[in-house]
Structure formats: structure tokens, C-alpha cells
Design a protein around this nucleic acid. Structure first.
Lengths: 336, 336
DNA sequence: TTGAAAGCGATACCAT
DNA sequence: ATGGTATCGCTTTCAA
């Protein structure tokens, strides 16, 4: 691969001049510029981004750490960041953190070594303290889908509690009173917050759940099916189910139908996340839209802004997002 | 951010020594090593990857160019490459090429500037000649999902023609004779190859299609629904449909059911790709598995290998993959 | 308008 | 075992 020296030699100018034309520098003679431009094109010169980054101390990449790309939810997150990257003529440097604290830490470190000054991290495994200290040393680090009070201005997160409340209000407004919940036994935070919000809203309206009608399973379709079996085996009637996420909800619906219940005529089902799946299912899923792409864009912009200003101007802004109810076909009013 | 000099100064050794311990260099005294290690930990030293790349002339990133991350198919592709990257302690540098030739070209160039020596490219818009010349100057460039004879040892691709054949054999073996096809009017290559393979297999078995029963639409769920309307409006009976991809197939099924046809009892439907969706649909989709993740891994390994050996050892290997029939619930034998 | 030269942070070769 | 130093490709003063 040819370097700036090659160009300089062939064009019979100094490397300084070449550098100027590469960067559209201010004072370059018209003829010199054209001569250099021609040589560059001829030999297919491409500036070395590493060398450039080394001297300018700034990187043209923005990093992302997510558990896994195959999950459409995280793919959307990455996509949001990528969009901002592209708008700023930057590229995405991606590390999957998998499920362990170790690999999350490793991924972040790699990004740091790359001098990647802006990056958004989705971490579920790292402890608060570690994240806080990381955030301190890396001003461009933004946490997504996680709220840590000590660094709240660096967090872009969804109000899961309120999400549960919205779901409850929707079901209640449809006259349902016999409510069931299917939750996840993984990653404690989100599921329990959603559940708490749900219960809190019921309480506010002087209703409450039958504890037996709260079951958990793995957060995927099969888990949803299993959970439904458990629910059904209790022989306690229910007319609506609030499910942890859409994948599970699809499982719940198919198990329900396999057992002779029609959705939504006999049982209403509401999911969470609004992933692609929910639009493709039959019946189409009523769910809570998780604006992950929008949040990711915000996080990326924040990360970028935070590196710009060396000042620790710590905007007092806070970045809480609310899920939005998307009424589709899997919920309907209780028919008596 | 602290540099190697800082460490050297504090530890009272030369930067050469620090460099040795960073790289687990061979000859370093035990005490010196520990002293340096301690200082590094204390001040949180992280080697600058850019400087490193500059001098070693090798990059620790592997690039990917895809149209879009939100499409699960491309997400899987990226995931396959990422897996190989991780195995080699590298990271993913990702550029979305969007739909235009310009942005595909731009994405590739950015990767090149980053000295990214290994990368896998999914390009549908760039012309053969351009890709060929690119491949010539970048030995680590591997094309995925595209076959160009002149650089066939740099291509990892799926035999779409044969895929059509497999679909036809499956439907024929189930006694179907009234066949319909729903294809895509986008990106000419894949759809038409699949269709040609389908027809060729029919011909081989002395069958043929009614030309009216071939319709096209956009390659998504809605397109599938629209296409089905068109099909139905012809008032020509058919008992099986070969659909361009899974998303369309889901649309076909729901339109069919909306019009009173049961799947698979009245009409069998077979998709293509085997994306997540196909396992979540009801009935579960019979489809052709596109081993994209496996292909992506292969492509990444190839890219890596090609940069290693400076020799143009041009293995005469070729990398054609075959789709695999996945029988699920949307196809069944014709019942008379 | 152009060139010379000093670094950016690391590696690696040559001494010692 | 350790240190000195040239070098990687580029940007950026400072002179001319």
C-alpha cells in the first residue's frame, strides 16, 4: 500500500504539501493541488487511518458493546449507533460482550485501547462500581439500558416500572380482572421492575393479583409455552396475561391455542419490546414498544458530545425513555 | 490517557523494557517485570492500538460491509464474522453499505484506509469489474453471497439455483402438481436463480408451471400478502407455493388463511432462508435453510488466511454452499 | 505557497 | 537482562 511519501516523491513535492491537499488544507497552489490529486488517483493512495489517529489523537470510530448480534433487539441497538456513526463519517467498532462479566470487561478494554473515545455499552453483568470507575476514566462512555444513579447523566434507560404500569392500565381498561403474569427468571432487574410496576398499578386501582398466577421461565418462545402449561395446571381462571417479552408472548399464545383458548376472545395477551416478531405473529401482538433504536441514537450522540467538550460540563439532563403501548390484535375487551 | 513513557518514567526503566513486558517479551528480569506490571496497573495504562498497528503493520480488526443491521439475515452474517474475530482476539469494524453503489464503495474504502486487511463484503450494487479490481489490490477481501468467476476463490456463495431445485423436489414428492411461485422484484439475481432452478427441476420431471402462477412483489410480509391476492385473483387453482423468502411466506400464509384456505391442508407453502421468524410462525414454516452464519465464518477465516500468507498461493478451492430443506409444518402431502 | 522537522505511541534491532 | 534509537505514516508548527 502506497504512502504519503510515494505520492510526494512522484508528484515532486514535499509530504507536507501532500498532506495539505489530502486534508483540503488552506494554502495550496492550484496546479500543485491538481498534480498531487492526479498522482494520488494514479497510484491509488489511501491515507493510513492509524497514523492519522495517532497524531491527531482522535478516532473515527464509535464503539458498541452488546451481548450478541443475533438478537434483533441488540441488532437494532447497534443499528441506531451505526446511524449516528455514519452521519458523522465514523464507523462502528463492535464487540460482543456475551454473557459474562469478564468478556464485557474485555470488550470495553479493547475499545479503550483503540482510543475509541465514544462508545455505548450495554452491560448487565458488570457491577455498578466497576462501571462507575470506567465512566470516570472514559468521558465518552455511555451506558444504555441501565440506570446507575451516581452516573445518571451517562445513562440512557427505559422506565420498566412504568412499562408494567402501562400494561396494567391497558388490561384493566379492557375490564380484565383475572390477571396472570409470565416473567423471566434471567437478569433480575428488568423483569422484576416490570412486574412491580404492573402490581403497583393494580394496587392503585384497588385490584390485586393471585400470586399463583405469576410464573417464570426462560425468556424465549419455548419458555412462554412452558410457563403457560404451568399457569394452566393451576386451574385458576384468568382472562389476560402480561408477558415479559414478545418472544415469550408468542409462545404463550401458541400454548394457549393448543389448549383450546382463543386469543384474544378467551384470553388477552400483551407482550413487551415490540420486536419484528410481534408484527409477524398471528394474531399480531399487542405490546409495549421499546424505542431501542431511538435510545441508541441518543446514546451515540451523547457519547460523541461528551468527548468533544473536554469540559466536564456534566449536563444535568437525564435520559429516561418510556415504552409506548402498541395495540394490535392479541388483546381485546373482556366478553362476558 | 497514559503512555508507555509514563510507565517507563515511573518504573524507572526504558520504554523498551516496558514494551517487552506488555508483549510478554522473552528476556525480562522477574523483579523488573513485576515493578512495571504494578506501575501499569496503578496508572491504568493501556497500550495505544493505533500506534501499535502503525509499527507492526497489522490490524486487529476485521471488517464487514453489509446493507443493514436490522435485517436478521445480515445480523447473522455479521455475527458469524464477529465470532471468528473474537476467536482471533480481533474486533469487528462494521460499515453498512445501504443500497447504493456509492455507499458500498465508500464503506469499503473506509475499511481500506483503516488498514483493515481482512474483510468480508456483501455487495449487490457494485459492478463485477470494480469488485475484481478491489479484490486484486486487497488480498484479504472476501465476497459473500456473490459469485464472480474471475475471482471465484474469493467468493463464498450459496447455490440459489439448486435451492430452487430442492424446493421443487420437495413439493413434487408431496404429489403437488399445481404449483405457484411468489418471487421478488428486487435484486434480480437471487430470485431469478431460485426460480430457474425450480422450473428446471419441474422440467426434469416432465412437469411445468402455469406462467400466470408466477407473481412478484416486495420481499417482505406485505409483499407476500399482495402477491397472494394477485395469485388468487387469477382463479387458477394451485396447491403449493414456493416463496422467495420467509418474510414473504409468512405474508402468503396469512393472506391464504384470510381467504379461507388452510395451510398446509389446502395449500402448502415453502419459504427460503430459515430466519428466526420461520420458527415462530404458525404453522411453523417449511423452508430452505441458508447457512449464512456458517458461510460468514468461512469467509472470515478465508479473509484472515489470505492476509497471512503474502504468497498469492491462490488455493484452487471453491466455496459453494447448498441450502438445506427444513421440513416443518407449512407443507404436507396433497390430500385429494 | 511550499518545505523541513518535530512529534504522536509503540516496536524491534543493535548495543551494552 | 536492559537501554538507545530508528522507524511506522501522518499532521502541524515554524521558516523561508
Amino acid at each position: 500500500m502506497s504512502t504519503i511519501k510515494d505520492v510526494a516523491k512522484i508528484a515532486e513535492v514535499s509530504i507536507a504539501t501532500v498532506s495539505r491537499v489530502v486534508n483540503n488544507g488552506p494554502k495550496v497552489g492550484e496546479k500543485t493541488r491538481n498534480k498531487v490529486l492526479k498522482v494520488m488517483a494514479d497510484i491509488g493512495y489511501k491515507p493510513n487511518a492509524n497514523a492519522r489517529a495517532l497524531v491527531t489523537q482522535k478516532n473515527t470510530t464509535i464503539g458498541v458493546v452488546i451481548p450478541d448480534l443475533t438478537d434483533p433487539f441488540f441488532a437494532s441497538l447497534a443499528n441506531g449507533v451505526e446511524k449516528i456513526a455514519r452521519q458523522n463519517n465514523m464507523q462502528l467498532l463492535l464487540s460482543t460482550g456475551q454473557v459474562s462479566a469478564d468478556s464485557e470487561r474485555r470488550a470495553i478494554n479493547l475499545l479503550l485501547e483503540r482510543q475509541c473515545d465514544a462508545f455505548v455499552v450495554h452491560s448487565k453483568k458488570l457491577a455498578d462500581e466497576e462501571l462507575i470507575s470506567l465512566a470516570q476514566q472514559a468521558p465518552g462512555l455511555i451506558l444504555i439500558d441501565r440506570f446507575i444513579e451516581a452516573i445518571q447523566h451517562r445513562c440512557v434507560w427505559l422506565d420498566n416500572f412504568e412499562g408494567g404500569g402501562i400494561a396494567a392500565r391497558h388490561l384493566l381498561s379492557l375490564q380484565h380482572t383475572q390477571l396472570a403474569c409470565v416473567t423471566s427468571h434471567y437478569s433480575i432487574d428488568d423483569p422484576s421492575l416490570r412486574l412491580q410496576g404492573f402490581s403497583a398499578e393494580l394496587a392503585r386501582q384497588d385490584k390485586q393479583m393471585v400470586p399463583e398466577l405469576i410464573v417464570d421461565a426462560e425468556p424465549n418462545q419455548q419458555g412462554g409455552e412452558l410457563a403457560t402449561q404451568k399457569l394452566l395446571s393451576k386451574h385458576i381462571p384468568f382472562s389476560a396475561v402480561f408477558v415479559y417479552n414478545d418472544a415469550m408472548a408468542i409462545g404463550v399464545i401458541s400454548a394457549l391455542e393448543d389448549n383450546g383458548f382463543r386469543v384474544p376472545q378467551d384470553v388477552s395477551v400483551i407482550g413487551f419490546d415490540d420486536v419484528l416478531l410481534s408484527r409477524y405473529s398471528r394474531p399480531k401482538l399487542t405490546t409495549l414498544h421499546y424505542p431501542i433504536e431511538e435510545m441508541a441514537e441518543k446514546a451515540a450522540q451523547l457519547a460523541l458530545a461528551n468527548c468533544e467538550q473536554v469540559s466536564i460540563h456534566q449536563s444535568s439532563e437525564t435520559f429516561k425513555y418510556l415504552p409506548r403501548l402498541v395495540k394490535r390484535e392479541s388483546t381485546s375487551a373482556l366478553s362476558l
